[in-house]
Simulated assay, not measured.
Amino acid sequence: MTGIDSVEISQAIVHKVGNPSRGEDLKLSANTLSLNDGIVRGILAKYFLAPFNVNEQYHFTHISDIGLNEVYSYVGQIFDNPKKFASQSALLATFLYNKSTHVKVKEGEMYVVHFKNVPFDTEYVEAIGIFKSESKETFLKVFPHGQGWEVAAEDGININKLDKGCLIFKVNKSEGYVVCVVDATNKQNDAQYWVNEFLHVTPYADSYHSTNNVLSMAKLFISTEIAEQFDVNKSDQIDMLNRSMEYFKTKENFQFEEFAEEVIHHPEVMEAFSNYKQVYEQAKQVAIDDEFAIHVSAVKKQEKLFKSILKLDKNFHVYIHGRKDLIERGYDEVKSKNFYTLYFDEES
C-alpha cells in the first residue's frame, strides 16, 4: 500500500495467541498500547500496511447470514462504537485462538489496530487491521559498557516481514466490507486457517481477480498438465508461457476462445485446456468468466512468476523470450545426448 504517511493509528492492542492443541495459552491484554512515540507509530504503520496489495480485494462471507461471520460482526461493533475496541479485540483473539488448532499453527502476537485516514480509491476512510506475528528473528544489539561496547543477541520481529494480516475498510458493509489479506507463512500448505477458518473471506468478482486467476490457471496447465497428456518439450512449454503473457500485455479484454486459439493453437490441446478450466474452478472455488477487462496490475504481478528459462542439467540455463522457430531440438546418437540448436544474428 502507498500513501500511508497520512494514516493515523487511533487505537491498538496486542494479545498473545497460542495453539490450544499444544497446550499453549491465550493471554489477553487489558490495556491498549500508549504509542506516545511518533517514530514508533510511523514504524508500526509501515509494518502493518505496506505489504498489502489494495487491488486484491475480498469480502466477508457466511453460508447463511453475513451477520453470523464472527470477524465481520466484531469489527462492525468497533466501527459503530470505538469505545468497544478493547472488548471486541478480545473476542477476535479468542475466536482466532479457537481456530489455531492445526499442528503447523505457531504461537504469536495478535495486533488489532483502529486506523483513520487510510487511502482508499480517491478518499480516506476508517479501517480495522488484524495482524499476527509468528516468526521471530535474532538481532544483535550493541550498547556501551564501561570504556567500550558490548554486543547482545535478542529475539524480535522483522518490521519488513508481516506474517499475517487483514485490513478491513469501512466500505460496502452490506456486501461484507472491502478486505485485503496477507498470509506470508502458509501460502502452499494446509494450514491456511487465517483465510479459511478465521476470516472466511472470498474475492470480489472483478477484473483484477479474473486476470490473476486465468494467468495462474494457464501457467499451471502449461507447466504441468499439458506435459502429462501431450508430447511437448520444455521449449514448447516456455513458448506457450511467453505467448500467454504477450496476450495479456497487448490486449485490453480477455476472451477465452481467442486466448486458446492464439496461445494453445492445437484443437486437442485447446479442448484439454477448456476441460482443465472446469477442474481449476472447482479446485480453487473460483468462477472464471469467458470475457472480462484485463487488469494491468494483475498482469505485472503474474509476469514475475512466468519464467522463460530452459534448464539443461546443471550446466546451462537458456532464457527464451520469443522466436520459437529459431530453436531446434535433437538427439545425438554418438554422444547419447539431447541437444538444442539456436539460430541468431549477433552475439552480445
Results as ranks from 00 to 15, higher is better:
D163A: 07
S89D: 06
F52G: 00
K116E: 11
I168M: 07
K337W: 01
F248S: 00
D345G: 01
K141I: 04
I320N: 02
Y111N: 03
N186F: 08
F139N: 00
W194F: 14
N315S: 12
E109H: 05
Q77D: 11
G42M: 10
D155T: 13
A184S: 15
H266N: 09
F169E: 03
N81Q: 12
K99L: 04
A86G: 10
A127T: 01
E346P: 00
S21D: 09
S348F: 07
V17W: 02
Y319S: 03
Y124I: 08
I4N: 06
K335M: 11
G3L: 10
T94R: 10
T2D: 13
V195G: 03
G176V: 05
L310C: 01
I39V: 15
K335Y: 09
K46C: 10
F85C: 07
E154F: 08
D345I: 13
K116Y: 01
Q237M: 12
V112M: 00
V195D: 02
F95I: 08
D183F: 03
A293K: 05
A86F: 07
F115N: 05
E154R: 12
R329Y: 10
T224K: 15
G129F: 02
F198A: 07
I222W: 05
K300V: 06
D289L: 04
S73P: 00
I63P: 00
E268G: 02
D289P: 01
L220P: 01
Y208V: 06
G3A: 06
Y111L: 08
S133R: 07
N36S: 14
F344G: 04
K164S: 05
P267T: 02
D239H: 09
Q192R: 14
F316L: 04
I320Q: 06
F85W: 12
V263A: 03
N19F: 02
M1Y: 13
Q302K: 10
Q57G: 13
T101F: 14
S6K: 11
V7Q: 03
F85A: 08
V171G: 02
Y111M: 07
F143G: 13
V103W: 12
S308E: 04
F95P: 01
G330H: 08
K187W: 10
E291Y: 03
G322C: 01
H266S: 09
I327G: 01
S223L: 03
S216N: 12
T202H: 09
H59W: 14
N233V: 12
G42I: 06
Y193F: 11
A293H: 01
H102R: 14
A127Q: 05
V299K: 09
S207T: 09
I43N: 12
H317P: 03
D37V: 15
N212A: 10
L33A: 13
Q255V: 08
P51C: 07
L35G: 10
C180I: 09
Q77R: 15
D206F: 06
L91S: 15
M217P: 00
Q11D: 14
Y74P: 09
E109P: 00
Q88H: 15
K251W: 00
D325I: 08
R329L: 11
G108H: 06
S244V: 06
K337E: 13
N242E: 13
V179F: 04
A152R: 15
V105I: 10
M217G: 02
N338E: 12
E261G: 01
